[in-house]
Simulated assay, not measured.
Amino acid sequence: MKTTSSAIEPASPRIRRIAYVGAIALLPYAAMKQYWSLDGTWGIPATYPTLLEGMEARARGKDLGPINSAMLWLYEHGVDVTVVMAALGIFLLLGLVRPWGRIFPRWVPLLARKPVPRWLPLTPAWVTAAILAPVFGVLALTNVVLMVFGLSHPDTDGFSPFAFYIAYSGMGPYGLALGAAAWSYQRRTRRQAA
């Protein structure tokens, strides 16, 4: 029996808005890392190599496995691997609140129009939310409050503090939005699984 996405309760408008905000919050990180992968230097200490130079230096004289070879290939073509991961993270977040995240699209061989197994999006969503929400949500916010009162002076390792906060300030909202979307997806698909 084929299941249609309309047979499954949609995410509420509030959860969809939270997911969209979380996805948008991750864009500055992706943009900054993509800028750096294209040899942009703003915000990076003058003594730091470019991302490609650093990767090539670490790879020199080593037998690279398939993952490191793929990462080096991406850097050689001007793409930071964490930008790819951010894009996958946004795809995951939006898939938790959109109909295409519950039913495999037509173009997926052998799985077209079949329900997505609950564990497939929920496992990476809960793991990622459990890491990002506390570290970049709670701890980073606490650190900002302490900085405002002059009680903390974080070491940004020579990076421009402004670039550092642009790049990483979206991780907390993304993690919180991912947790909210995963909770909603789990609740909505539990009825379907039963």
Rank of each mutant, 00 (worst) to 15 (best):
V21S: 01
G78L: 15
G137T: 11
P10T: 01
A86D: 15
L72I: 04
W107N: 07
P10C: 11
F164E: 10
Y75L: 10
A193V: 10
H153W: 03
Q186C: 06
A129N: 03
G179F: 02
G65C: 11
A181G: 02
L110A: 06
G150W: 10
S5M: 11
M1P: 01
P117I: 06
V135T: 14
S69N: 12
R190S: 10
Y168P: 02
A46G: 05
M171E: 14
T47G: 08
G137F: 00
P161A: 09
V21N: 05
Y20V: 11
P66I: 13
R118H: 14
R188M: 02
L38H: 10
S6M: 04
G172M: 00
A182S: 11
A112V: 12
L93H: 09
A46S: 05
G65M: 08
T41H: 09
L111P: 07
T189N: 01
L141C: 11
I15Y: 03
A7G: 04
A140S: 15
G158H: 11
P161K: 07
G137Q: 09
R188D: 14
R98M: 15
P121E: 06
W126I: 13
T3V: 14
Y29I: 03
D157Y: 14
Y174R: 05
E9N: 03
V21G: 06
K2R: 09
L74R: 01
R187F: 04
G61V: 03
L122D: 03
M171T: 00
G43R: 00
V84R: 03
L74W: 12
P154A: 09
P28L: 05
K2M: 08
D39A: 08
R14W: 09
L146E: 09
V148D: 09
M32R: 01
P109V: 11
V97Q: 12
I67S: 09
I103T: 05
H77N: 15
L120D: 07
W36R: 01
G172K: 00
M32L: 11
I90D: 00
M32A: 05
G54R: 06
F159A: 06
H77A: 13
W119C: 03
D39I: 02
V79M: 15
T50K: 03
D39S: 04
I44G: 01
F91W: 14
M32Y: 07
V108R: 10
T41G: 11
Y20A: 09
I103F: 14
K62T: 10
T82L: 13
P109A: 07
L92K: 14
W36A: 02
I44H: 04
I90Y: 15
Y174M: 07
P66L: 12
S160F: 09
A194Q: 08
G43P: 02
M85I: 11
